[in-house]
Design a protein around this nucleic acid. Structure first.
Length: 683
DNA sequence: CCGCCTCGAGGTCA
DNA sequence: CTCGAGGCGG
């Protein structure tokens, strides 16, 4: 068995069964229109299983038998998204939605008076409450699936996605592109969620708190057999990269095409002729919400025409041409039990409300930030009050207001401290700032701990294993006083600590060692310069190329960096003129912290300086303006026409005369895929 | 901020 | 086997 080859007849049979099953599967899950009974389906599936068992050569990754799950993985691999997975801007009321529409029409030069004349059509669809994923199909076969992650890098969850019935293992229909990345949301339908929990409860197993976390937990299983037993679904809402597909004119047409190839799209997908119709769609969806078999947290509106989308481009980490109109956050009332004061990295004192735990927006809330002294005053809140709590912007719990009529006679005023709760030094408040700060800087143990935690955090040097508790432990034990001490920790010294044995200790030392190889933006961010977050750190790194250049930069040249004004420039100058911080940087470098030599390029200028590039044809994976900006950031000039001086031509789909001219003049050309690879290789 | 998963530590029991 | 830390995602 297994070593004999299957006959042509059997190979044929297996292929037919596979196609048939995939087809029925699609009818059932994507079009909700089954033509055979469940038991007939099971019979077909079992026949294929038998065949594959007998002749393992017949097995292919797109076989429906593969949905039952595979052997457990040791860990998830990291996956880089060629095209970053962006987030969406939000609108919390109708006015914000109308402002969005006004911005769109202004930028597209459509004119305000045309508001009600159907000039700007929007695609409307509900925003499912699940997890964003990306799925890559090569020649119509599902090849790789990944979580969104931070948008740039996610985790490879191919095997888990393969178990989801509405994830097509291979695409069907006409003109399937050789390369296609789709994006969508994985979620657990409410019926499945309830059934799963009912069964879990009966079996005395743990139940899930809400469908979103159930879906997230299911996708994070290393053993895909467990995922296979979870009722998950995929609904797609956009295309990432693609090759060999001339995109249609509108977003809705894209989705309809995806649907024809076998993907589930929202049955509520619709268009709105103008923003008033969007508002109406939102109202209708809000009423419909309670009857749906899945959680939604808002409605997404997208400018429907792709040429308009290209014209509008992106802001920061979100497309300019789309907005999510959020449903109002769910609210609940509870008691304010106490207020604690925490010291942040920059010394800011943050009051944190300790609440009587209350279930709101799908989770149990027991803490909420009160932001600062002004916020406490604005709310007029006292300890013992009944407060209204809500989960704002999806995540962070917030005290919305106080029910003064319920105030007990025992309510006590919240006393803002006058001294730092960690180091006792006096607090000060700078004119015009909301925050009250401890100015002791790194002398304050709380700030020292925060600085170290920040340095080790995911977006900074990403030292895995050096978390909150461990930093507290290490600082309290005197193992770490300042950042460079991290790099002198020894396994023996760590293993002597509580709850940290040989294994963890050597893992940590290895992670610390690995963190020495970093990048300039990460390092800058890790230093914790005030007002220098991830984005600013990246701009600074790109602009100055090296730490030396940045250190020597005066305020004027700092201000010439995008998003850097006088305030940030001031903080940066202040940081690099402080002898203590300079010593910390020196010690870190002595300890071996280093980043690739972008500084080599600083004099010789950027990698593409002196080159002239020409873009022609339409690009599928990026906006032309983005392509231009990226090239210019690398020092290239981007010209409109091809000449003998042109260094290179990027030929997108339907490239015309410019491509012909390039070939005539012997100017090298590259296609879009090569171009994207090239960009990612040198950026 | 919270819920979920995974993993290591350290206990209990064989 | 239980506990708790850390990573991840929204």
């Amino acid at each position: 068995m297994g070593h004999t080859s299957p006959s042509a007849e059997l190979i044929n049979q297996a292929t037919e069964l596979r196609d048939l099953l995939n087809q029925h599967n699609q009818r059932y899950y994507v079009h909700d229109d089954p033509v055979i009974s469940d038991s007939e389906y099971d019979q077909l599936l079992r026949r294929l299983q038998d065949l594959e068992e007998q002749y393992p050569q017949l097995l292919s990754p797109d076989s429906p038998t593969q949905r039952v799950g595979a052997a457990p993985l040791p860990a998830f691999k990291q996956v880089r998204h060629e095209l970053p997975m962006l987030s969406l801007n939000n609108a919390f009321d109708d006015t914000e939605l109308e402002e969005f529409d006004r911005r769109m029409r202004e930028r597209l030069k459509l004119g305000a008076e045309e508001k009600h004349q159907s000039t700007l059509e929007y695609a409307c669809e509900p925003k499912l409450d699940g997890l964003a994923v990306s799925l890559l199909y090569r020649d119509g076969v599902f090849e790789r699936g990944a979580t969104r992650g931070d948008g740039e890098t996610g985790e490879d969850i191919t095997l888990n996605l393969r178990t989801i019935a509405s994830v097509p293992l291979c695409l069907s229909g006409d003109n399937i592109p050789p390369l296609l990345e789709v994006r969508g949301e994985v979620y657990m339908p409410l019926a499945g969620f309830k059934a799963f929990n009912a069964r879990a409860e009966a079996a005395d197993e743990k139940v899930f708190i809400n469908p979103r976390n159930a879906a997230a937990g299911s996708l994070r299983q290393l053993d895909s057999k467990i995922t296979a037993a979870r009722p998950l679904e995929l609904c797609v809402y956009s295309v990432g990269i693609s090759e060999g597909w001339t995109l249609p004119a509108t977003h809705v047409e894209i989705l309809n095409q995806l649907n024809q190839w076998g993907f589930l799209i929202s049955p509520l997908l619709d268009t709105a002729a103008n923003i008033d119709a969007c508002v109406a769609y939102y109202q209708k969806a809000k009423e419909l919400r309670a009857t749906l078999n899945y959680d939604i947290d808002g409605i997404v509106f997208k400018v429907n025409r792709l040429d308009h989308q290209r014209q509008l481009g992106f802001v920061a980490r979100a497309p300019r041409w789309a907005i999510a109109r959020k449903f109002p956050a769910e609210e609940a009332t509870t008691q304010l039990l106490d207020v604690e004061f925490q010291v942040g990295r920059t010394g800011a004192i943050t009051p944190v409300a300790r609440l009587d735990p209350v279930f709101v927006g799908g989770v149990t809330v027991s803490n909420a930030t009160l932001h600062n002294r002004d916020e406490i005053a604005r709310l007029g809140v006292k300890i013992g009050d009944t407060v209204v709590v809500r989960r704002a912007g999806d995540v962070i719990p917030q005290v919305a207001r106080v029910l003064l009529e319920d105030r007990p006679s025992t309510a006590r005023a919240i006393v803002f401290p006058e001294h730092c709760p960690a180091c006792e030094s006096a607090l000060s408040r700078i004119e015009g700032e909301a925050a009250v700060r401890c100015t002791a800087g790194l002398i304050c143990p709380a700030q020292r701990k925060q600085a170290i935690k920040h340095f080790a955090s995911r977006d900074a040097l990403d030292i895995e294993g050096l978390g909150d508790k461990l930093v507290d432990q290490l600082v309290d034990a005197g193992c770490i006083h300042s950042l460079p001490d991290i790099y002198h920790l020894k396994v023996a010294e760590l293993a002597a600590l509580e709850r940290l044995a040989e294994k963890s200790a050597s893992n940590l030392v290895a992670a610390i060692e690995a963190s020495k190889q970093t990048t300039l933006p990460r390092f800058l961010y890790a230093l914790g310069i005030r007002e220098v977050g991830k984005a600013t750190a990246r701009s600074l790194a790109q602009h100055f190329g090296s730490l030396e250049n940045l250190q020597e930069a005066d305020e004027d040249s700092l201000k010439s960096v995008a998003d850097v004004g006088p305030i940030v420039a001031g903080f940066v100058r202040q940081f690099f003129t402080n002898t203590d911080t300079l010593k910390v940087i020196g010690d870190l470098r002595d300890a071996g912290v280093q980043w690739p030599d972008i500084e080599v390029l600083e004099q010789a200028a950027l990698p593409l300086s002196g080159e002239t590039w020409v873009l022609t044809g339409s690009l599928n994976t990026m906006m032309r303006s983005d392509a231009k900006a990226r090239l210019e950031a690398l020092g290239a000039k981007v010209a409109g026409s091809v000449s003998a001086n042109t260094t290179r031509v990027v030929a997108g789909d339907k490239a015309g005369s410019k491509l012909a001219k390039a070939e005539a003049l012997n100017v090298p050309t590259i296609n879009e895929t090569e171009f994207v690879e090239y960009l990612t290789s040198i950026e």
